[in-house]
Structures are given as structure tokens and as C-alpha cells.
Design a protein around this nucleic acid. Structure first.
Lengths: 361, 361
DNA sequence: TTGTATGCGTTATCAC
DNA sequence: GTGATAACGCATACAA
């Protein structure tokens, strides 16, 4: 084996010529019956003579028959394929949702086509077109941050594709939806901070064209109102939803004449991590001098020093819920009323970064 | 909108009846020509009158024609679909490889079907069968830890499916491969530890039926030999490839009469994290009393206290390389000799956990 | 219960 | 250069 710059050449092997797959005609021929009978037997359609049916199944197994999905799809106009569009595949929340979807759909023999929009509206439109093109039976989507135009989603629906939105949804579009109760989670987080004795709580908010960030902000405002704490605009920082932006926002907040004593990074744990790193660099003690709460329960929040309080979204469960919603909606056709929106209640995970009172966890 | 236990019912909307998609017959009829001409024009096959061709393309655009891939696939016996099988989707290395594959294949109009084996051989076999069933053109796979039987891979090849193995590969199977130079990376890591002044370096090794773990161990042994350091079996811990097992191994190692002063968690960063947590809990100073090196450059290694030295595998680049290897192999049919194995050299990322000499990073 | 005939939409092979 | 026709493999309406 010779090698050039880390690239190895092995000997050339001839391409195998693929064996021809057995078809229902092969089975029919062998049994001296017609292909339609074979098809019927294989699909449990109408009534086939139990004896011949058994014979058919037996020879099908013998000949290692596998239904040609390409032909079947063409004939049926269905593909048993579900398209999933997420902003980023390699983000914990989304990859976990995909895992959940996969677990539930796998058992039913469905396939998944995964696409990522990279947070770009244009790319999202392309993904939709690809999936329509592929004749998927269902599209599961969490919207990207850019763009308020949802005509591409309507376009998919017009093609007879079942659309399910999750997490980042367009409220005005009437589709199946699986969401988190962001407002409630947000309120709980703020309530927890107040109960820990924090007085001036800042909010890092995300792009307000995404409903999830609107809801999280709303929860923040409601909680403050409930406890009669005045809302101060200087404590609300727009568009701080990456680690870098979170860090930047923190530097700004901590240099205020009257700085906050807690920061709720409602956008993500990455943002919260930015907060923590700045605090550590400035030798500001967390949680005694500054409380920090993130969102999403990314795995790393458990291993930072100190560990970060955050909100778990039950992402894998969410994925399963989405898939089951699809099956429920499409199998139980007799049921007139099915739930159109399922809301999952997230859970506040209290860790060291907000444990001001030093209570044993 | 009424609500029951977090499930909301909205009003019922009627299912849209999907519009019929336009076919080449529609175009042909409109232009008073035959479908075959339309097909030829659309596919640039043989010679079509430039004038009619332009007319065809124009009306195709007008009627919003989209090729029916189901029919095309059936006719062509190709699907322009690539199946990817990984042990776990939500593991950073794998999700990044998928991102890389996706980026490269997306541009070429290919689709991805993602499957995860969950580290179970049985499930891996199922995945292969599913993908064969779906008539994918190519299967990209990284093997699960269990099982030495690779007949299912051969089975896919026999079906005329291009097989590409990456990272965890079966050496004896002659397929396209994209791998890391694990041995080299391992040697570099150990060399670095020795240069930092560590004398007794322990190894956490992974299941030895996976070639990557064999190679990493081999690199460890070779490096020690090179520096004339005796190999001590009590410093080599088998099967320590999760955080928990890494922690357990560390407790065992540190309770030895003559404990190690460095631990190379060759299996993963998760394992290294287990080491770090035990060290922190036992108030053993890292890196001065114990050096720690992981593998994979998981994002969290940067944010632990102290940050963890590790090895970057260029996962996204690896994904792109895999995809391009496929295209190269299948497009340039005239090229007789193409590289069969591409080896990517990983990079040692030196961080605080091994910086014993206190050199400024 | 089974066979016959047809169509799903496309592409390839022939003729002309 | 273009048209007619067959074939990919399956599933179903209808006839027997």
C-alpha cells in the first residue's frame, strides 16, 4: 500500500454487480399464480385463500423478497418518510428532539430526512422545497430566527404534506404544534431568583420575532409585576443569544452605576456561559454577588464552576411527542377532535449559580 | 380554546386537498409535442431543437413543474439519497461529521437518511436493512462497539450500494474509508505529557474490538517505549469509556500504592471529565499533582476548571471529506486509481489540565 | 377467491 | 430532432 500525503491507495477491486432483487412477479411465476394475488397476500388486502397466502409468504421469505419501496411509493403517492428541519443539527436541544422523533418513527418503519436551515430563511425555504420534492408525508420544523414570511410553510401544506411545528413556531399558522410553556418556565426562574434574595434581575432577551423569546420575556415581566418589582429598561438587553453576545451584555450590565445582582439569560445556556466567564474574569463571585440562570439544560451547565441553574425542556420527550402526534392524527381518522397544540411544561433545574442562600442541593 | 392537562384543542380545519402536480405530459400537451421530447429537453439528453427546448423550459417554469422523484427513482434505480449510520446522533463528534456530510451533499441535491445504532449491533443490522430497503445510493457508517460480524455490511455492498466507513472501521472490509490517525495523535499526547514532566502516565482504554481504541493504545505504548519508560499493567485500565467508568478507574488508580501523576483518557472527553471530577472531589490539584488529557475536543473541555487538554478530530472537515470521496469515486469513472483510504491527522489541543510547567498558553 | 388490465411519472430504445 | 412504445415494480378496480 503506497501513501501520498496521508492518502493511501489500496488495490483496485471490481465493482460487484448487484443481484437483481426479487419481485412479486418472481414469486407469482414460481407458484403459477399472478402478481396481483401475491400483492394482495403480502398486503393483507381483501381475501386471499389462506393456503395460497401461506405459500406466498413462505416463498417470499425463501426468495428474500423485499417490497420495492420506490415502486410502492410511486403507486401509493406516499413515502413513509418524514422531513425534519431544524436551525442546527449539532445543538443539543435539536439533536435530542431528533433522537426522540427517530425513536418513535423507527418502530413504525418511517424514515427521516434531516435538514438544517443554519438560521437562514433562504436555506429554510430550500429545505422545504427539497422535502416537497422528495414527497415526504410530513414535515417537522422549528423555525429559524430570520424572516417573518411563512409562505413556504403554506406551500408545503398546499402540497398535502402534514406540517408540525415545534418549539419555535409561527403562531398564526394553523398547524399541529408542540411547544414548551416558555412563559411559565420563565416566571418560575425569576420567582426562584427573587426567593433567593436577588433584588435587581437583568434579562438577556432573544430576537423578538421568535415567539419563544417573546414568551420568555413576558414571563420575566409578569414575575416582576407579581412581586411589585419595577421594570427597568437598562436591565433588559436585546439580542444577547450567543456566548459572545452574552459576555458583551454582561460587561455592559456590570458597568452600570447600579448593576444587577442576577442575570437571567433567557436565550440559552451559551449566553449564560458568556455571563459566567465574564463574572469569573472580573472576580465577581457567583452566586453570592451575581446569580445566573440559563435556558435549555445543555450538558455543560452541570460541569461549569459553579454549575449553572437552567431550564430543562425535555427535548427527547418532545421529539417522541411530536412523532406520536403525527401518528395519532393520521391513523385515528375516525376521531373527530384531536389536540392541535401540545404544550410541555419545562422544569427549572436549580444549581449552584443561583444558590445564594447556600442551601445544600 | 379549551385546555386539558396542558393539551389545547383548537378549532378543526379541513384538510386541504393537494393540488395535482404538473407532469411532463401536461407540458407536452400544452405545446403539442410528446412527453419524451419534454423529458429529453429537461434532462439535456441527446439533441433537442434549441427553440423547442427553450419553449419547454419556459412552460415548465410557468406550470411550476417539478420532476417527480418517485417516478424518476423507480425508472433510474437511483435515489440520490445517502444513508448515514452512527452510534449516537447527539454526540458531538458524530453530529459534526453529519453536519459536514450534509454541507457537501446538499449542494449536489442529495438527501440524507440518518440512523443511529445506539451502540447495538442488532440495531445496526436493522439500520442497514432499512437503508438497503430504501435503495440508498451510498451508506456512510461508523461502527457500533458491539459485534465483530460484518456480514451486514457485505450484504449492503452486494446490493450494489457504495459503502464508506469512517472513524470506527472494520479494517478487513475493503471499502472506502476515512479515518483519523489515532496512533499518531496518541503518541503526540503522551509525548506532550512526558515533556511536561509527568513520570507515571496511566491509560484509560476503550473496548479493544474497535480499531480506534487499539490504535490509541498502541500510540501510548509506542511513546512510552520511545522514551524508555517501562509499561506497567496496573496503569492501564480496560473499558473506561464513559464519564462514570472514567471516574471509577480514577478512584482505583489514585488508591494505588504508587499512583500515576497523569491520566490519558484515550476513549473520550467524557471519560476525562470523570477523571477531573474525581480529582477535584479528592482535592488533588490539576495539573500540578495530576495531568489529564482527553480525546475528541468536546466543547465542554474548554470550559471546565481547569480546561482539559484534548485531541481535535476535525469532525466537520471529516464529514465533508467523506462526502467528497463519494462524489469523486462515482463521478470520475474514467479515473482508474482513486484513493481508498483517507487518513486525517488529528491535532493536540493543549490546555490547562496538562500545563504543569505553568507556561502561558 | 383469483385473474386481467391499467396507471403511477419517468426515461430509454427504437424507429422515422 | 422527434414520436411511439416499453419498462421500472407495485397496487387496485373490475371482471370472472
Amino acid at each position: 500500500m503506497q501513501s501520498i500525503a496521508g492518502i493511501y491507495f489500496s488495490h483496485i477491486y471490481p465493482p460487484m454487480k448487484p443481484k437483481r432483487r426479487t419481485t412479486i412477479y418472481d414469486i407469482a411465476e414460481k407458484l403459477n399464480i399472478t402478481a396481483s394475488s401475491v400483492s394482495r397476500a403480502l398486503n393483507n388486502r381483501s381475501h386471499v385463500n389462506p393456503a395460497t397466502k401461506e405459500l406466498i409468504l413462505k416463498t417470499a421469505a425463501e426468495l428474500n423478497y423485499k417490497r420495492n419501496v420506490l415502486a410502492s411509493n410511486l403507486r401509493m403517492g406516499k413515502t413513509k418518510t418524514i422531513g425534519v428541519i431544524v436551525p442546527r443539527i449539532n445543538q443539543n436541544f435539536f439533536s435530542n428532539v431528533i433522537v426522540g422523533i427517530e425513536e418513535a418513527t423507527y418502530q413504525k418503519g418511517y424514515n427521516l430526512i434531516i435538514c438544517q436551515s443554519n438560521e437562514l430563511h433562504e436555506r429554510e425555504v430550500q429545505c422545504i422545497n427539497t422535502l416537497i420534492h422528495q414527497h415526504v408525508d410530513c414535515i417537522i420544523i422549528s423555525l429559524c430566527v430570520n424572516g417573518n414570511d411563512h409562505s413556504h410553510l403554506q406551500y408545503a401544506i398546499d402540497h398535502g404534506i402534514q406540517l408540525i411545528q415545534f418549539d419555535r413556531v409561527a403562531d398564526e399558522l394553523e398547524t399541529l404544534k408542540v411547544i414548551n410553556d416558555n412563559e411559565q418556565a420563565s416566571m418560575e426562574a425569576i420567582t426562584h431568583l427573587i426567593e433567593q434574595g436577588y433584588k435587581r434581575i437583568a434579562l438577556l432577551e432573544g430576537p423578538q420575532n421568535l415567539n419563544i423569546f417573546v414568551q420568555r420575556k413576558s414571563g420575566y415581566l409578569k414575575a416582576l409585576n407579581k412581586f411589585n418589582i419595577p421594570i427597568e429598561n437598562e436591565l433588559i438587553i436585546e439580542n444577547a443569544w450567543t456566548k459572545e453576545l452574552g459576555a458583551e451584555a454582561t460587561r455592559k450590565l456590570l458597568s452600570l452605576p447600579n448593576p444587577p445582582d442576577a442575570i437571567f439569560a433567557s436565550t440559552s445556556d451559551f449566553s449564560a456561559l458568556g455571563v459566567l466567564e465574564v463574572a469569573n474574569a472580573m472576580h465577581i463571585k457567583v452566586p453570592s454577588q451575581l446569580g445566573i440562570c440559563g435556558y435549555a439544560n445543555e450538558p455543560f451547565t452541570e460541569i461549569t464552576t459553579p454549575s449553572i441553574t437552567t431550564i430543562d425542556q425535555f427535548s427527547i420527550y418532545m421529539g417522541k411527542t411530536i412523532a406520536n402526534l403525527y401518528f395519532q392524527e393520521n391513523e385515528n381518522k375516525e376521531v373527530a377532535i384531536t389536540p392541535k397544540t401540545i404544550s410541555i411544561k419545562p422544569k427549572l433545574i436549580i444549581r449552584s449559580s443561583t444558590n445564594k442562600k447556600g442551601v445544600k442541593e
